[in-house]
Nucleic acid binder design. Sequence first.
DNA 1: TTTGATACCTAAAAATCTTAGGTATATTGC
DNA 2: GCAATATACCTAAGATTTTTAGGTATCAAA
Lengths: 114, 114
Amino acid sequence: MFSRELLKGTLRTIILKLLAEKGRMYGYEISQYVKTQSDGRLQLTEGALYPSLHKLEKEGLVKVEREQVGKRMRKYYSLTVAGEKASRSRLAEFEEFLQVMQLIIQPKTQGDGS
Amino acid sequence: MFSRELLKGTLRTIILKLLAEKGRMYGYEISQYVKTQSDGRLQLTEGALYPSLHKLEKEGLVKVEREQVGKRMRKYYSLTVAGEKASRSRLAEFEEFLQVMQLIIQPKTQGDGS
DNA sequence: TTTGATACCTAAAAATCTTAGGTATATTGC
DNA sequence: GCAATATACCTAAGATTTTTAGGTATCAAA
Protein backbone atom coordinates (compact mmCIF):
# COMPACT_ATOMS: atom_id res chain seq x y z
CA MET A 1 0.00 0.00 0.00
CA PHE A 2 1.12 3.53 -0.66
CA SER A 3 2.28 5.66 2.22
CA ARG A 4 -0.67 7.31 3.84
CA GLU A 5 1.29 10.50 3.96
CA LEU A 6 -0.43 11.44 0.72
CA LEU A 7 -3.77 11.10 2.37
CA LYS A 8 -3.20 13.99 4.69
CA GLY A 9 -5.72 16.65 4.02
CA THR A 10 -8.04 14.37 2.08
CA LEU A 11 -9.70 12.53 4.94
CA ARG A 12 -12.35 15.17 5.44
CA THR A 13 -12.96 15.28 1.72
CA ILE A 14 -13.55 11.54 1.69
CA ILE A 15 -15.92 11.63 4.64
CA LEU A 16 -17.96 14.51 3.26
CA LYS A 17 -18.18 12.89 -0.15
CA LEU A 18 -19.26 9.52 1.21
CA LEU A 19 -21.95 11.07 3.39
CA ALA A 20 -23.23 13.05 0.41
CA GLU A 21 -23.33 9.83 -1.59
CA LYS A 22 -24.77 7.43 0.96
CA GLY A 23 -26.99 9.69 3.00
CA ARG A 24 -25.77 8.40 6.33
CA MET A 25 -23.02 6.15 7.58
CA TYR A 26 -21.42 5.25 10.89
CA GLY A 27 -17.71 5.45 11.59
CA TYR A 28 -16.86 1.81 11.37
CA GLU A 29 -18.89 1.53 8.20
CA ILE A 30 -16.89 4.32 6.59
CA SER A 31 -13.60 2.63 7.36
CA GLN A 32 -14.82 -0.72 6.03
CA TYR A 33 -16.29 0.85 2.92
CA VAL A 34 -13.07 2.63 2.08
CA LYS A 35 -11.08 -0.55 2.65
CA THR A 36 -13.34 -2.60 0.40
CA GLN A 37 -13.74 0.00 -2.30
CA SER A 38 -9.98 0.49 -2.54
CA ASP A 39 -9.29 -3.25 -2.63
CA GLY A 40 -7.54 -3.00 0.71
CA ARG A 41 -5.10 -0.39 -0.52
CA LEU A 42 -6.41 2.31 1.75
CA GLN A 43 -7.21 1.72 5.39
CA LEU A 44 -8.31 4.66 7.47
CA THR A 45 -6.97 4.49 10.99
CA GLU A 46 -9.53 4.91 13.73
CA GLY A 47 -7.28 7.34 15.51
CA ALA A 48 -7.70 9.67 12.55
CA LEU A 49 -11.27 8.85 11.58
CA TYR A 50 -13.11 9.34 14.86
CA PRO A 51 -11.49 12.64 15.83
CA SER A 52 -12.19 13.87 12.31
CA LEU A 53 -15.87 12.98 12.60
CA HIS A 54 -16.05 14.72 15.97
CA LYS A 55 -14.51 17.82 14.51
CA LEU A 56 -16.90 17.86 11.59
CA GLU A 57 -19.74 17.61 14.07
CA LYS A 58 -18.39 20.42 16.20
CA GLU A 59 -18.13 22.55 13.08
CA GLY A 60 -21.74 21.87 12.25
CA LEU A 61 -21.05 20.06 8.98
CA VAL A 62 -22.43 16.71 10.11
CA LYS A 63 -25.06 15.65 12.57
CA VAL A 64 -25.36 12.45 14.58
CA GLU A 65 -28.11 10.00 15.34
CA ARG A 66 -27.37 7.31 17.89
CA GLU A 67 -28.91 3.97 17.22
CA GLN A 68 -29.05 0.86 19.33
CA VAL A 69 -28.24 -2.39 17.51
CA GLY A 70 -28.65 -5.20 19.97
CA LYS A 71 -26.74 -3.91 22.95
CA ARG A 72 -24.25 -2.05 20.80
CA MET A 73 -24.46 1.57 19.84
CA ARG A 74 -23.95 3.02 16.42
CA LYS A 75 -23.50 6.67 15.65
CA TYR A 76 -24.87 7.49 12.26
CA TYR A 77 -23.49 10.61 10.66
CA SER A 78 -25.19 12.64 7.96
CA LEU A 79 -24.61 16.02 6.37
CA THR A 80 -26.20 19.21 7.59
CA VAL A 81 -27.12 21.85 5.05
CA ALA A 82 -23.77 23.51 5.68
CA GLY A 83 -22.19 20.09 5.28
CA GLU A 84 -23.74 19.60 1.86
CA LYS A 85 -22.32 22.89 0.76
CA ALA A 86 -18.93 22.02 2.22
CA SER A 87 -19.02 18.65 0.49
CA ARG A 88 -19.58 20.18 -2.93
CA SER A 89 -16.94 22.79 -2.30
CA ARG A 90 -14.44 20.19 -1.11
CA LEU A 91 -14.93 18.06 -4.16
CA ALA A 92 -14.48 21.02 -6.45
CA GLU A 93 -11.29 21.91 -4.63
CA PHE A 94 -10.03 18.39 -4.91
CA GLU A 95 -10.58 18.40 -8.63
CA GLU A 96 -8.76 21.69 -8.95
CA PHE A 97 -5.95 20.23 -6.89
CA LEU A 98 -5.71 17.33 -9.32
CA GLN A 99 -5.57 19.70 -12.27
CA VAL A 100 -2.81 21.71 -10.66
CA MET A 101 -0.84 18.60 -9.82
CA GLN A 102 -1.14 17.56 -13.45
CA LEU A 103 0.25 20.91 -14.57
CA ILE A 104 3.20 20.63 -12.24
CA ILE A 105 3.97 16.98 -12.74
CA GLN A 106 3.30 16.94 -16.45
CA PRO A 107 4.41 20.43 -17.37
CA LYS A 108 3.13 22.38 -20.34
CA THR A 109 5.87 22.05 -22.90
CA GLN A 110 6.03 25.12 -25.10
CA GLY A 111 6.03 24.46 -28.81
CA ASP A 112 5.30 20.81 -28.42
CA GLY A 113 2.95 20.83 -31.35
CA SER A 114 4.67 17.98 -33.14
CA MET B 1 -6.94 29.28 -4.80
CA PHE B 2 -7.88 25.98 -3.28
CA SER B 3 -7.09 25.32 0.34
CA ARG B 4 -3.57 24.09 0.67
CA GLU B 5 -4.77 21.46 3.08
CA LEU B 6 -4.99 19.10 0.15
CA LEU B 7 -1.36 19.67 -0.58
CA LYS B 8 -0.23 18.10 2.64
CA GLY B 9 2.02 15.19 2.01
CA THR B 10 2.63 16.10 -1.62
CA LEU B 11 5.31 18.73 -1.18
CA ARG B 12 8.16 16.23 -1.18
CA THR B 13 6.64 14.51 -4.18
CA ILE B 14 6.59 17.79 -6.08
CA ILE B 15 10.17 18.64 -5.18
CA LEU B 16 11.52 15.22 -6.12
CA LYS B 17 9.62 15.22 -9.39
CA LEU B 18 10.78 18.69 -10.39
CA LEU B 19 14.41 17.88 -9.64
CA ALA B 20 14.13 14.70 -11.69
CA GLU B 21 12.66 16.74 -14.52
CA LYS B 22 14.91 19.78 -14.45
CA GLY B 23 18.17 18.33 -13.22
CA ARG B 24 18.79 21.03 -10.69
CA MET B 25 16.88 23.91 -9.19
CA TYR B 26 17.24 26.29 -6.28
CA GLY B 27 14.58 26.88 -3.67
CA TYR B 28 13.23 30.18 -4.84
CA GLU B 29 13.17 28.86 -8.40
CA ILE B 30 11.03 25.92 -7.32
CA SER B 31 8.50 28.17 -5.64
CA GLN B 32 8.31 30.47 -8.66
CA TYR B 33 8.06 27.59 -11.09
CA VAL B 34 5.17 26.03 -9.21
CA LYS B 35 3.40 29.37 -9.02
CA THR B 36 3.77 30.02 -12.74
CA GLN B 37 2.99 26.50 -13.85
CA SER B 38 -0.18 26.43 -11.78
CA ASP B 39 -1.30 29.86 -13.02
CA GLY B 40 -0.91 31.23 -9.52
CA ARG B 41 -3.25 28.67 -8.01
CA LEU B 42 -0.57 27.00 -5.94
CA GLN B 43 1.99 28.92 -3.96
CA LEU B 44 4.43 27.01 -1.84
CA THR B 45 5.21 28.79 1.40
CA GLU B 46 8.88 29.27 2.14
CA GLY B 47 8.36 28.09 5.69
CA ALA B 48 7.42 24.70 4.28
CA LEU B 49 9.73 24.61 1.28
CA TYR B 50 13.11 25.33 2.83
CA PRO B 51 12.77 22.96 5.79
CA SER B 52 11.58 20.29 3.38
CA LEU B 53 14.67 20.76 1.20
CA HIS B 54 16.89 20.58 4.26
CA LYS B 55 15.28 17.38 5.33
CA LEU B 56 15.66 15.81 1.92
CA GLU B 57 19.32 16.73 2.06
CA LYS B 58 19.76 15.25 5.51
CA GLU B 59 18.15 12.06 4.27
CA GLY B 60 20.58 11.88 1.39
CA LEU B 61 17.96 12.22 -1.34
CA VAL B 62 19.24 15.53 -2.68
CA LYS B 63 22.63 17.19 -2.75
CA VAL B 64 23.52 20.87 -2.77
CA GLU B 65 25.87 23.08 -4.72
CA ARG B 66 26.26 26.65 -3.59
CA GLU B 67 26.70 29.19 -6.32
CA GLN B 68 27.53 32.83 -6.13
CA VAL B 69 25.43 35.12 -8.34
CA GLY B 70 26.72 38.64 -7.91
CA LYS B 71 26.94 38.93 -4.17
CA ARG B 72 23.97 36.70 -3.61
CA MET B 73 24.09 33.01 -2.94
CA ARG B 74 22.02 30.32 -4.56
CA LYS B 75 21.76 26.76 -3.38
CA TYR B 76 21.16 24.43 -6.27
CA TYR B 77 19.58 21.13 -5.37
CA SER B 78 19.80 17.96 -7.43
CA LEU B 79 18.91 14.34 -6.87
CA THR B 80 21.33 11.77 -5.55
CA VAL B 81 21.08 8.20 -6.81
CA ALA B 82 18.89 7.41 -3.81
CA GLY B 83 16.87 10.51 -4.66
CA GLU B 84 16.23 9.33 -8.20
CA LYS B 85 14.90 6.09 -6.86
CA ALA B 86 12.78 7.91 -4.29
CA SER B 87 11.45 10.21 -7.00
CA ARG B 88 10.22 7.34 -9.15
CA SER B 89 8.76 5.57 -6.16
CA ARG B 90 6.98 8.72 -4.99
CA LEU B 91 5.43 9.32 -8.37
CA ALA B 92 4.20 5.75 -8.56
CA GLU B 93 2.68 6.09 -5.12
CA PHE B 94 1.01 9.32 -6.07
CA GLU B 95 -0.56 7.71 -9.11
CA GLU B 96 -1.81 4.84 -7.03
CA PHE B 97 -3.21 7.33 -4.58
CA LEU B 98 -5.11 9.02 -7.40
CA GLN B 99 -6.51 5.70 -8.55
CA VAL B 100 -7.68 4.87 -5.07
CA MET B 101 -9.28 8.27 -4.68
CA GLN B 102 -11.13 7.68 -7.92
CA LEU B 103 -12.45 4.39 -6.62
CA ILE B 104 -13.70 5.99 -3.45
CA ILE B 105 -15.07 9.16 -4.91
CA GLN B 106 -16.55 7.58 -8.00
CA PRO B 107 -17.56 4.21 -6.64
CA LYS B 108 -17.88 1.09 -8.72
CA THR B 109 -21.59 0.78 -9.24
CA GLN B 110 -22.64 -2.82 -9.61
CA GLY B 111 -24.83 -3.54 -12.57
CA ASP B 112 -24.60 -0.04 -13.93
CA GLY B 113 -24.36 -1.31 -17.47
CA SER B 114 -27.05 0.96 -18.78
C1' DT C 1 15.52 56.28 -2.00
C1' DT C 2 11.97 53.58 -1.30
C1' DT C 3 9.54 49.70 -3.06
C1' DG C 4 9.35 45.17 -4.83
C1' DA C 5 11.73 41.23 -6.40
C1' DT C 6 15.27 37.92 -5.50
C1' DA C 7 17.24 34.54 -2.16
C1' DC C 8 18.15 32.55 1.87
C1' DC C 9 16.69 31.32 6.80
C1' DT C 10 14.22 30.04 11.51
C1' DA C 11 10.97 29.40 15.49
C1' DA C 12 6.41 29.10 17.60
C1' DA C 13 2.03 27.51 16.97
C1' DA C 14 -1.57 24.95 14.61
C1' DA C 15 -3.20 21.02 12.32
C1' DT C 16 -3.25 16.35 11.24
C1' DC C 17 -1.98 11.80 11.57
C1' DT C 18 0.15 7.44 13.68
C1' DT C 19 0.75 4.60 17.32
C1' DA C 20 -0.90 2.35 20.93
C1' DG C 21 -3.56 1.68 23.82
C1' DG C 22 -8.74 1.13 26.22
C1' DT C 23 -13.88 -0.71 26.65
C1' DA C 24 -17.57 -3.72 25.37
C1' DT C 25 -20.73 -6.72 22.49
C1' DA C 26 -21.38 -10.27 18.90
C1' DT C 27 -20.07 -14.09 16.17
C1' DT C 28 -17.50 -17.98 14.55
C1' DG C 29 -14.64 -22.04 14.98
C1' DC C 30 -12.95 -25.60 17.75
C1' DG D 1 -17.91 -23.60 26.65
C1' DC D 2 -14.14 -20.81 25.17
C1' DA D 3 -10.94 -18.41 22.42
C1' DA D 4 -10.28 -15.69 18.57
C1' DT D 5 -12.00 -12.48 15.47
C1' DA D 6 -15.14 -8.93 14.07
C1' DT D 7 -17.94 -5.12 15.27
C1' DA D 8 -18.15 -0.43 17.33
C1' DC D 9 -16.95 3.13 19.94
C1' DC D 10 -13.16 6.04 22.22
C1' DT D 11 -8.68 8.78 23.78
C1' DA D 12 -3.87 10.45 24.63
C1' DA D 13 1.03 10.94 23.53
C1' DG D 14 4.10 11.68 20.12
C1' DA D 15 5.58 12.56 15.34
C1' DT D 16 5.25 15.04 11.28
C1' DT D 17 4.08 18.67 8.43
C1' DT D 18 2.46 23.05 7.55
C1' DT D 19 1.17 27.94 8.55
C1' DT D 20 2.27 32.14 10.38
C1' DA D 21 5.28 35.49 11.12
C1' DG D 22 8.96 36.98 11.48
C1' DG D 23 14.46 37.93 10.13
C1' DT D 24 18.69 39.17 6.88
C1' DA D 25 20.64 40.85 2.66
C1' DT D 26 21.29 42.01 -2.44
C1' DC D 27 19.54 44.01 -6.69
C1' DA D 28 16.62 46.64 -9.90
C1' DA D 29 13.29 49.94 -11.00
C1' DA D 30 10.42 53.94 -10.01
